[in-house]
Each structure stands twice: as C-alpha cells, then as structure tokens.
Design a protein around this nucleic acid. Structure first.
Lengths: 175, 175
DNA sequence: TATGAAAACGTAGTGATATAACCTATATAA
DNA sequence: TTATATAGGTTATATCACTACGTTTTCATA
C-alpha cells in the first residue's frame, strides 16, 4: 500500500499535527472542563474532537467547517470535511460548541454563562467577534412567548448581527 | 433558434406558469398589500417576484430556494436558482419575506405583526409550520441586552425549533 | 416617439456547505 | 480473547448560494 497513510495509531498521528503548539493555560483549563463534562456524560473526548474544540476556543472568530479542516491540516493532508462535521456534531451534542446558523460557522461555548436558559450571540460585522449575551429578563420573556404559544422548544437560534462597541462609527463593516 | 424559449414578453410568459391558479381572496389581499408597499418604496413587484411571494404566502411550510424553483416551473422548464435567489433577495429587502437561517428556507412575512421590533419564529419539527411570535417584553429584554453590551444591531435571527401545540405528545417529530 | 441608462432577467458555470454509503480501526466490557 | 459499539477513513455526492456576463425590459428624458 504505497500512498496510504499508516492506518494504525491515528490517535498518536493526529496528535502530531501542525496545531500541536502548547495551549495557553486558560485554554488548558477550558479543555480540562470539557474533559470533565464528557466523562460525566459517559462519552469520549477523542483527539480529533479535542483538537477541533481547542481550535474553536482559541479562535477570536467563528470558524467554518472547511476552515477548521484547513487549520487542522498536517503537511499537505487536510482533514476530510465529514471528519470535521462529525467532531462538530459531537461537540454540539455535548453542549461544548454552537453552530451559528446565520453564518454557517461554529464557536466554542466554553466562554458562555451556563446559568442562563437562553443565550443570544452578538456577531460583529466589523471585527467578526462573537459575544454571548444573556439575562434573566430575556430568558423569561422568551419563555413566556413560548408558553403563550403553547410551543415546546427543542433548540434556540438567537443571533444578532451588527457592530460591537469597538467597531461603531469608524467605517468598519461591510455596508 | 430551435430550443430556446421565446425571449420577448417573458412577463406574460411567466404569468402562464402552472402556478397560475386563482389565488384565494385572502392571498389576493395580502398580495395587494405587498403591491402597495412596493409602490410606496418606489420599487417594482414584477411577475416573478409576485409569484415567489405568492408561493411563500400560500405554503404552510417554509420553502427552500430550489423547492420554489420546482414549484414555479412550467412544463419541464424550471426556474433557474439564481432567478429565485434574486426574487428572494428583493422580497427580503422590502421586508416581505424572511430567511430562516436554521433551515435554509424562506417564508412570507405578510402574516407577521409588523408593530414589533423583534419577531421570533417558532418552527415545528412535527408539521413544519412556522408561527411568528412577539411581545413588548421580549423586544424590550432583547433591546436591553443589546444596549448593555453596547451593540448596534443590524439583523436579528430569532428562531426556535420544537413542537407546536398540535404536535405535542403523539410521536410527531424526528427525535 | 426615439433613445440612453438602469433595472430585471436569462444562461452557464462554479463556489461553499453538508451528508451518504461503506469500510477499517479502536475501545470497552463480557 | 472476542463480541459489540463507537470512532474515524475514503470516496462520492447532495444541497445551498452566488459570479460573470449577455439580453431584454422599463422608464425618464430628449
């Protein structure tokens, strides 16, 4: 088998990718929290999944699936899209990542305030950053809205695009 | 020119598509309102645009762009995707249609309560219907959230997937 | 009523996002 | 150790959205 990458021990293999710079202390702590959550859920935070989560956590902007694939590529061999999507699906199921439907992009939720029922994501058109925002009043109002409509919620997509405090008034953004 | 559809008079041509069943009285009234809005904005509600809007308005479920293209096809000749997207872009700009980011699908806003700053769309996993929902409290809480974050909003994506009142408790839905 | 500019649309191709199908490898527990 | 479930690899394809460019129509003006 000439061209095929050695198939065994891919856990170790993926561990040697370009991304393998030592994570910051904060990142390491966040990943440790993720590890704990996964153990509690009885699921496995494998190398691929951890690598994807770390990339999302470290990034200042949301990342697309193909962007992640490129980012996590080792020399000339990038991750297959489906691999990234599988990792993302896992992370989203475990509540560790979030899909921004309005951008087809993904972020880590390890920065979020986990105590709120409803988190809105504020996406800056200028600098691309995303800030989670929540309040009891907002969660309550939404909950009222839903119960008044007798609607049983499963997934909430709450996103606002605009300009963050730092990007207002000096021509940032695209319109 | 053997295969090419006669190019002139396409306004009339599109008017003769399969969809040309007489709209209901309610639909006709909604379309008349749309017409009025467009005239007020100084823009044109052409046949294609009106046809797309009518399809969205009449549909019980949100429709994808390619779904619309199929729906509005005349004998064996369906609308090109770009044509649909152009019509949708127009309708969205005029506030007549809305894109559901979580579904890659589109709905008419002619049912909405136009008086609210923030409308959440409740998307039923069971029957596929979408209900707009809004309240002063919800709009206010969101507005507070945004001003507290010093965030200048441009576009709001507020969608909740779940089960509507009619689809609760009898095994509808996909999970 | 000519005509020139802008808006709308047609046609072909492509980019971007996401998943299907099927197989191999690994982890976990009996 | 072996059965089983879970995870990942590989290839191909589905789905959604847009670019580029030419043609037609509309509308205001000459």
């Amino acid at each position: 088998m000439p061209h095929t990458v050695s198939y065994k021990n891919y856990e170790h293999h993926t561990g040697t990718r370009a991304q393998a710079m030592a994570p910051s202390k904060e990142t390491a702590q966040a990943l440790a929290r993720a590890e704990t959550i996964c153990r509690a859920h009885g699921v496995r935070l494998t190398t691929i999944r951890r690598t994807v989560l770390e990339a999302l956590y470290s990034s200042q902007k949301p990342l697309g699936a193909y962007e992640l694939a490129d980012l996590l590529a080792s020399n000339a061999r990038r991750m297959a899209p489906i691999t990234v999507y599988r990792a993302l699906d896992f992370l989203i199921e475990q509540g560790l990542a979030h899909r921004l439907a309005s951008r087809n992009a993904y972020i880590s939720t390890l920065h979020d305030d986990g105590s709120q029922e409803a988190t809105a994501y504020l996406i800056c058109d200028g600098c691309g950053t995303v800030e989670p925002a929540s309040s009891a009043a907002f969660a309550g109002a939404l909950s009222d809205l839903l119960s008044r409509a007798d609607f049983e919620p499963r997934a909430k997509v709450l996103e606002v695009a605009g300009h963050c405090s730092r990007c207002q008034g000096h021509g940032h953004g695209r319109h």
